[in-house]
Design a protein around this nucleic acid. Structure first.
Length: 471
RNA sequence: GGCCCCAUCGUCUAGAGGCCUAGGACACUACCCUCUCAAGGUAGAGACACGGGUUCGAAUCCCGUUGGGGCUGCCA
């Protein structure tokens, strides 16, 4: 490997930034950081019709959120057209490219007539046609011949030129096609390692031919990493799969958890370790150890990773990460009182969520004025259980008179009560929990009751009793 | 169709000819712990796609088959 590699991530702003792109960016970034090289961000926006400025913002904010920073850029191909025309002029002068005004239909008809593979037949190659309004520039591929791609992860891949058509490098509207812009920029930016998704492998011989035609003697190192696939094992696409990085952020994933998980799709440190810090990733990542086969993007496993990362947060960090999610709730006022209560319950919540987005629903009962009990739970836990009414009534009078409204005392008093009626606590807690929190699951009960306070607790018990009797 | 890539539990993977009775993780099942739910602990089920070679010996090397994927655009 070159002593100071220059790598680039070159997304096109044509849709949400998805996790596959994030992983490619990450791998590039890891190589740069590992070797003291440079990571360059380049926006490939040569196709005006499909670009959107909002997608550029999305790419930038997603990369920033993930902690993938760049040393140069973002460059934009749309601002570098002089570079491309210079290269184009050179290719034309050296007769390595020619103008072609064949229409797609004509090409298809000719292909059909001659049988065999579809594609352009080189019709205009020796016709010396001048540039005209409808013409596009094609690259003249040497024939016969073959081009070998020397790929770090794939090995040597040979492409026979017989299977390569004279491809277009400049559209009839004058803008360059991505292969051309790509190669010109890679030369100009002195890119040493081209690491991209496997889907680009078939166009690599074209790129190599262009590198050579433009006078490059030492080609960059190529590495094509396997694509990420959906459950049907198709390449992840922003159109059919909902996999935008920002969606995961909004769901409550922690960036380091996502980065950690992404790094492991297609690569492993070679042992059983799975939880790796960024520094460890930088140290251990090795292109030679990248897998060859596509990896399924498994949200379930990523969520598990996220849970582990959340539990590893300090209580204070956890609270801070939760605020944006609380602020989306209409019951959240961020009053001193609410802040106090949330801080108090948060360590118990931290152990119970795997997404930050799960936090509000778990604590809502502590903050809403009038708690609504779901009808099915009222039926199932309160009415169907013959003992529920008496338990709630008894507990209400116990809690009314308890000296210290602390979780220890509540716990003790409740346990004493359980003993007196010869019923296990696990049975007794169910109706209390539903009456007080509106849910069968949640943070530990007595801590919750303490934070609810005596008044609210007694009121809710009373309300639940009325509900039972009101049938 | 043509070209190219790929192939270990359902999933992500370890595996560089003997360390493999194929290891770990997610998910799943059971049990333990337990005030619910999580977390944690223990156990369990679960894979080398198939067929030929090469070799004393193959998950590992070669060939073929099958299967999957990608590309085949005046998209990137």
């Amino acid at each position: 490997m070159n002593s100071s590699p220059r790598v680039r991530f070159a997304p096109s702003p044509t849709g949400y930034f998805h996790v596959g792109g994030a992983r490619t960016a990450l791998y590039n970034w890891l190589i740069a950081r590992k070797s003291g090289g440079k990571f360059i961000l380049r926006i490939e926006d040569t196709d005006e019709a499909r670009n959107g400025e909002e997608w550029v913002d999305g790419i930038i904010s997603a990369l920033s959120w993930l902690g993938i920073d760049w040393d140069e850029g973002p460059y934009r191909q749309s601002e570098r057209s002089e570079l491309y025309s210079k290269a184009v002029n050179r290719l034309i002068e050296e007769r390595k490219a020619y103008w072609c005004d064949c229409k797609r239909e004509e090409i298809d008809v000719r292909a059909k007539e001659r049988g065999g593979p579809p594609g352009y037949d080189g019709h205009c190659r020796n016709l010396n046609k001048p540039k005209s309004p409808g013409s596009a520039l094609r690259f003249a591929i040497s024939r016969p011949g073959s081009t070998t791609v020397n790929d770090v992860v794939r090995g040597e891949v040979v492409f026979d030129h017989a299977n390569l058509e004279d491809f277009i490098i400049v559209k009839s509207n004058g803008s360059p096609l991505f292969v051309l812009a790509n190669v010109v920029d890679d030369i100009n930016m002195k890119i040493t390692h081209i690491l991209r998704a496997e889907e680009h492998l078939p166009t690599t011989p074209k790129a190599i031919l262009l590198f050579k035609a433009l006078g490059v003697e030492e080609l960059p190192v190529f590495a094509h990493v396997p694509v990420l696939v959906n459950a049907k094992r198709q390449k992840l696409s922003k159109r059919r799969d909902r996999v935008a990085v920002e969606d995961y952020r909004d769901l409550g994933y922690l960036a380091p958890a996502m980065v950690n998980y992404l790094a492991l799709l297609g690569w492993s440190p070679g042992d059983d370790r799975e939880f790796l810090t960024l520094d460890e990733l930088i140290e251990l990542f090795d292109l030679e150890k990248v897998n060859h086969s596509p990896a399924f993007f498994d949200e379930q496993k990523m969520q598990h990773f996220n849970g582990v990362y959340i539990r590893n947060l300090s209580d204070e960090e956890f609270v801070n990460y939760c605020y944006p999610f609380l602020e989306k709730c209409d019951w959240w006022t961020a009053s001193d009182d609410q802040l106090y209560v949330f801080r108090a319950i948060s360590p118990l919540v931290k152990e119970r969520v795997s997404l930050l987005g799960e936090v509000p629903v778990m604590v809502e009962f502590l903050f809403t004025e009038d708690l609504r009990l779901p009808e099915d739970l009222v039926e199932q836990v309160l009415r169907k259980d013959a003992k529920a009414a008496s338990i709630l009534a008894d507990i209400r009078s116990i809690y009314e008179t308890i000296a210290q409204f602390s979780h220890d005392e509540l716990n003790q008093a409740t346990r004493n009560y359980c003993e007196s009626i010869d019923t296990p606590l696990r049975k007794v807690q169910a109706p209390i929990r539903v009456a007080l929190t509106g849910s069968k699951v949640g943070p530990p009960l007595f801590e919750s009751i303490e934070l609810l306070g005596r008044e609210t607790t007694l009121n809710r018990l009373e309300k639940a009793l009325q509900l039972i009797n009101s049938r």
